[in-house]
Design a protein around this nucleic acid. Structure first.
Lengths: 114, 114
DNA sequence: ATAATGTATGCGCATATACTCATATAGTAC
DNA sequence: GTACTATATGAGTATATGCGCATACATTAT
């Protein structure tokens, strides 16, 4: 019986669910596209539709998902609704994923030219 | 015409797909549980089955998913197969997500007691 | 009031994926 | 060879989710 019973933190099931949900929100290309478009600043739904090339219905739905996850903030002005990044830590997240994947891909590429 | 046309980088569709895939791999509680268990070091499949409480078939499948994403490494020794974290940047990712969510939750909690 | 515009949503379909069960494969011991 | 253990995988099912279409809702203008 090796004393392997050393976990960094128990991490309850509920916490794991929450973390998984968070990752799931980021696991859709269109939502990443929307976040990317919002990097330049607050945008209305219509602007986001044009920027991303998605349909209005689909963009609206994805924005709702992002808003429920508190990743973007909603501001209504007249008949337009503006969305903006609410949690800037997202960019660090994405940057880290990008970096890790670039590293991975270049390592795979190196396996050929080696 | 505000000079809002300033994107950090174009980010091709293919890149967005890859990033989304990466997040999707992390979007399952059982896989997070497995990564968490592997934090203590290399483990065999059977050990992971005991540690996570999942069925052998399910654990094996999720390990395969993690391995395909190059998040864990596979090492066969005799009839046992050992898995280990292959990309330590995962922990930074999870730590960041946890931090962001703790912040979010405490802010929501503060909205009541305020 | 009607009309036009911007946004959200109900519904149906198609696809993806997580799970269980049973079985296959690989390795070890006898 | 058979028996046993460890791991992987095929099949079937249930659930979730992204998408498009049509429509509802909200706001402003006329």
């Amino acid at each position: 019986m090796a004393p392997k019973t050393k976990s960094p933190r128990p991490l309850s099931d509920a916490a794991l669910e929450l973390i998984a949900r968070r990752f799931a929100v980021l696991a859709e290309p269109m939502r990443l596209r929307l976040l990317h478009a919002l990097f330049a600043g607050e945008q209305s739904v219509n602007e986001l539709v044009k920027l991303t090339g998605g349909t209005q219905a689909n963009v609206s739905r994805h924005l709702q998902t992002l808003a429920q996850a508190h990743l973007v903030a909603r501001r209504k002005e007249g008949q337009q609704v503006f969305y903006a990044i609410a949690d800037p830590s997202i960019f660090q997240l994405c940057a880290q994923v990008c970096g890790s994947m670039e590293q991975q891909l270049s390592r795979q590429a190196g396996a050929f030219s080696r």
